[in-house]
Every structure is written in C-alpha cells, then in structure tokens.
Design a binder for these strands. Structure first.
Length: 182
DNA sequence: TCAACCTGGTAGG
DNA sequence: CCTACCAGGTTGA
C-alpha cells in the first residue's frame, strides 16, 4: 500500500445537516469537518459523495456532533461539543483568526480591529476581514460575531441576512435602524 | 507584482 | 447622518 494520489484528491464526504432553517452541507476530509455550506436553493448533495480512500474513524460520530452543534448555534446556544475541525487548508494567519473567533461566546461580539489587535497586528484589520470571509466553517466558527466598528454589521460572505439571523438568535442587540445602512 | 477584501479613521458637507 | 478618500495586512493569481 502506498499513497496513490492524495496530492490533489483530498477525498471529501458531503453529508446533509437538516435544520429548521434549511439543509446545510457538511464536508469531511479524513481529518474532520473541513467545510460547512449554508442551505442552498438546490442542494446537489442530498447524500454521500464518497470518492477514494476510507473516511476517518467515525464519520458518523463526527457528523452527529456537527448536526448537534449547528442546531445549538441556530438556537443561540454554545455547542456542547464540536467535531474535529480540519483547517489545514488555511494559512497560519487565517487559522489564528479563526481560533480567536471560536473564543467569542454567543451574545457577544468583537470588531475586526479587536481581533487584529488581539493577534498583535492592530493594522491588519482588513486582513482579518479577509480571513473571516475565507472561513470554511461558518456558524461553528462564529465569524458572524465580528462586527465593524460603530457596531455596524459589516459584511458576510454567506449573505448578510444570515448574519442578522444568527446574531438575533443569540440575543445580540443589532444596530438600530438609524445606524445601519450598508 | 497586483488587485481584491466581511475595515478604520479622518475630512467635509 | 452621509459620501469620499487614504492607510493598511494578507492572500491568491
């Protein structure tokens, strides 16, 4: 046995994550959850998309944890447990940002500048925004809890409506109809 | 090398 | 309150 072609074929399994807000799609590598997609209007992956080598030890256990974790966040609560996260495809900077995001509890928010300063790069505010946008596992890695200065919403790759919905679920006071206006 | 980014702060109306 | 503009770190082509 030898590594046949693991260079370009990560072998990803995609499983559906049913929730009251739609069906998310969880992508797993042999190292854990590597991506989470928001509900699509027409999810092509309503099943398993296996291809190549065998999955991790317990793909089922991982997925069970994912489903429970996503459900918890959608209810504005902190997940009791997370599946192993495979963030290997991110840069060091991005991983450090994502790690900081995981430290933000539900109902609390930070600004891009706060995250940047926390990482020792107070000027890298824009880079932090970029890292948030590159977050492969939204919801579980709460990039939605990062607001712009002035408590404005800022942006969101997954769509601002989702950012608002997630924040309101955890009781975060959204900027009044006077300040916002992206 | 260059442009794009989920920003931030300042200046002016 | 709102637009305009510049400074700025990191990333991917």
């Amino acid at each position: 046995m030898r590594a046949e072609s693991q260079t370009k074929s990560p072998a990803i399994w995609v499983l559906p994550v049913p929730t009251p807000d739609g069906e998310f799609a969880a992508h797993y590598s042999n190292c854990g959850l590597c991506a989470l997609d928001f509900p699509a209007r027409k999810p092509p992956a309503s099943g398993v998309k296996a291809s190549g080598p065998p999955p991790g030890p317990d793909l089922h256990a991982w997925h069970q944890a994912t489903v429970a974790a996503v459900a918890a966040v959608l209810q504005g609560r902190s997940p009791a447990q997370l599946p192993p996260l495979d963030l290997s495809r991110g840069t060091d900077f991005q991983r450090s940002v994502w790690k900081s995001l995981q430290a933000i509890p539900p109902g609390r928010t930070r600004s891009y500048g706060e995250i940047a300063g926390q990482l020792g790069r107070p000027k890298a505010v824009r880079a932090v925004g970029g890292a948030c946008g590159a977050n492969p596992i939204p919801v579980l890695i709460p990039c939605h809890r990062v607001l712009a200065a002035n408590q404005r919403l800022g942006g969101f790759s997954g769509g601002l409506p989702w950012k608002q919905k997630l924040l309101s679920r955890e009781g975060t006071p959204l900027p009044p109809p006077a300040a916002p206006r992206p």
